[in-house]
Design a protein around this nucleic acid. Structure first.
Lengths: 365, 365
DNA sequence: GTGAAAGCGCTAACAG
DNA sequence: CTGTTAGCGCTTTCAC
């Protein structure tokens, strides 16, 4: 093995362990001070066109790239936001993540990605995130222990939950209209003459599931229907597959299934059609929540409550931006309006349908 | 507005602009030197159990978290790997990303995420990545200009392309068996008596598309078939929808379509079934490439060449790990073996089927 | 095993 | 507008 210390090696030797070019070296080549170099790379610092040019030239020659790590050490801002997300196999989460990367990218922020295990407490991973001194934290569909929320608040780190809420008043949140959405779904299903309702639940400990389930059940009970049959699918396709089987094997099979998210609804359609030979939309109705991309594919044609991904993410970005400017800002809790998109997976009521932006939507009354 | 400098404010004032606790403060509280604190947090440094305990206590009391930014400034390693990826709406890419996050997480590395636009040159975003002094670069389904490859090599930054190859000898790559896979698909389709072949191409400038297309076409030509009809779908569902329409509207409609990836194949099935009322698997055969999760859903039942995500990502992680240890290591180019998974979307040959690990696969001869 | 001291590469006052 | 001077929070010799 070739020693990597022998500087006298011929040109053949890999030039691999040289440290990157520093501002100092650029300064020397350009014949200016190191701070002049710094200034040319700092937004809105005062440098004469002359020195700027000299610096740029030297920099290009040397292949200089400002070290953002060093910069953030002194400025105290990393321009990085930590994002935690549980599993990207849920396409809705992927869509959120992509939108986040884009949205934050536009304001010059980068994303550091952490995947969380829905079963496990995510505190250890958050612990890790904080060590990287991220400027903000976005938790997608994850819970936040109130202990942690407090701590973040104390160090002035903005935290926003996306698609989940928390009891703690310390973190902001952006969610869809879970309650109103689920209520509309119940009303929609009732209006189209269904009788035996079922609910496939998401993760039990998620606020979204609680909200959707409660609103759905409440509406039905208030309108004289029996309490829906309840099975849990944990937001996963696999979970929904067994849940649906269980439901459809009952002697008194439900005629309408509301799934807590699209992923499960699509899996339910899959099972109903391929395993039970049911005509989805006439023999059995399936409704989801999210309106992820696949829902709109004709092969599924899923009726679902649409959550506007770009809007939600837009709000997250705005909140972070604001919080970054004004530390100590009070957390905000926003819910972004969605709409019930009507396709073919569920029987359609006579009234209440309208077309908005080319999509068929339903409104109560 | 309340001044944030008045320290004499009552306790009510938001404690928001205090900088995080430093090792120095911990040291003072613990009654030891700052370097002692550093040592307790450094793997394999020598600290007496006594001081360690004192430090830990003080740290907990103060809520100390070592600043990884400062650490990486001095160690020259950030424990971050930059990952670029074009669009997460392709589920296969999501799967890769998730596996990457997990795989690198296990060896203590975090992922900084960058999304690239397939049309645009990704150099500007790479430029940005390098400023963060990431320890390595993983480009998922992205190209790398040879200019950039050279530069990375020069600064000793390991770069590995995942699911794509490059001419440059400077970057490593991990790909599936594109050529052999596409050849097998051609052979499979020929063995099941298809006559009129079509190919829905991915992005024209991607190595994967070139490899798959060439192997597919070559096999057919060598075995006396006409050159397959060719339409391009750019790896996207939307692209494949129009491509499929075009194909199925021809007077002499193809009886077998090979799509350069699953995403497009699923879209093709969708169109064939819902718009043209074709029985996929008997009236028309559709084959994909990747074996993403949806391919296995019975509603699609897609016959496809499976690329082993975990294995591929495992190789990426290994390569990076090695390269990190041994700068100046020569780039490696690995191709990971896959297999042709047989489901119902394409007519099945009489011979060549076997069951491995519970899945039906096909082998030439 | 421990503390003192010297930086990592950069930004941010501060005089000129 | 420019250079000089202090550090940001940490790791790492180096004597003790």
């Amino acid at each position: 093995m070739i020693s990597r210390h022998s500087k006298s090696q011929h040109a053949l030797a890999a030039p691999a362990d040289r440290r990157p070019v520093t501002a100092h070296e650029v300064a020397r080549l350009a014949g200016v001070s190191q701070s002049a170099v710094s200034r040319t790379y700092t937004e809105g610092a005062s440098v004469s066109p002359d020195t700027r040019e000299k610096v740029m030239l030297a920099a290009k020659q040397l292949g200089y790239r400002p070290n953002l790590v060093a910069r953030s050490l002194i400025t105290g801002r990393s321009n990085i936001v930590g994002v935690t997300i549980p599993s990207l196999s849920n396409p809705f989460y992927s869509e959120l993540l992509e939108a986040l990367a884009e949205g934050f990218g536009e304001i010059g922020y980068r994303i550091m990605l952490f995947t969380t295990n829905p079963d496990r407490n995510s505190d250890p991973v958050l612990e890790e995130v904080l060590r990287y001194r991220v400027d903000a934290l976005v938790l997608v569909a994850s819970n936040l222990s109130s202990h942690f929320a407090d701590e973040c608040q104390q160090i002035g780190l903005p935290v926003v939950l996306l698609n989940r809420k928390t009891n703690s008043k310390m973190a902001s949140s952006v969610t869809g209209e879970n309650k109103s959405g689920a209520t509309q779904i119940a009303a929609f299903l009732a209006a189209s003459d269904h009788q035996r309702f079922a609910y496939i639940a998401g993760l039990e400990n998620s606020s979204t599931n609680r909200d959707r389930e409660k609103a759905f059940t409440d509406y039905l009970q208030e309108h004289g229907y029996a309490t829906p049959i309840r099975v849990v699918g944990n937001y996963t396709a696999a979970g929904a597959v067994s849940a649906t089987r269980e439901l459809l094997n009952r002697k008194n099979r439900p005629d309408a299934i509301f799934c807590a998210n699209d992923q499960m609804a699509l899996a339910a359609i899959n099972v109903a059609r391929t395993e039970f030979n049911l005509a989805v939309g006439s023999q059995i109705s399936v409704v989801g929540f999210d309106d992820s991309e696949l829902a709109g594919w004709p092969i599924f044609g899923l009726t679902t409550y649409a959550q506007p991904v770009r809007l939600m993410v837009g709000r997250v970005v705005d909140i972070v931006k604001e919080a970054l400017g004004d530390k100590g800002m009070a957390p905000v809790h926003e819910t972004v309006k969605g709409r019930l998109v009507v396709r073919e997976s569920a029987r359609i009521p006579d009234k209440g349908i309208s077309i908005i932006d080319g999509v068929k939507v339903w409104h109560q009354e």
